[in-house]
């Protein structure tokens, strides 16, 4: 399934849920925030939230900052 992840095209093999996508990307256990089509997906809803062709996914994490 074709998705846009962080602004770039991404071919997802696992797309039954947001959680599955994060696993596939190797960031399953990491603290990230997921924005699906401009909407924040709370971590509690990630396994129930499916993906559709062309969905726009943005993933953010915390880094050091002042």
């Amino acid at each position: 399934m074709k998705l846009i992840v962080n602004g770039e095209a991404y071919e997802a093999k696992r797309h039954e849920s947001v959680s599955a996508l994060l696993e596939e990307m190797g960031i399953g256990g990491r603290p990230v925030v997921v924005v699906l089509n401009d909407e924040v997906i709370p971590s509690s809803s990630r396994s129930a939230c499916g993906l559709r062709e062309g969905d726009c996914v943005e993933l953010f994490r915390l880094v050091g900052g002042g």
């Binding site: 992840v5 962080n6 990307m25 960031i27 603290p31 993933l59 994490r61 880094v63």
Partner: peptide
């Protein structure tokens, strides 16, 4: 204070904040 950045395409192991949490 911490900052927010996009997750890169290649997962990085420079997680500065894991230990802080």
């Amino acid at each position: 204070t911490v900052a927010l950045r996009r997750v890169g395409r290649i997962p990085r192991e420079d997680d500065m904040l894991g230990p802080l949490g």
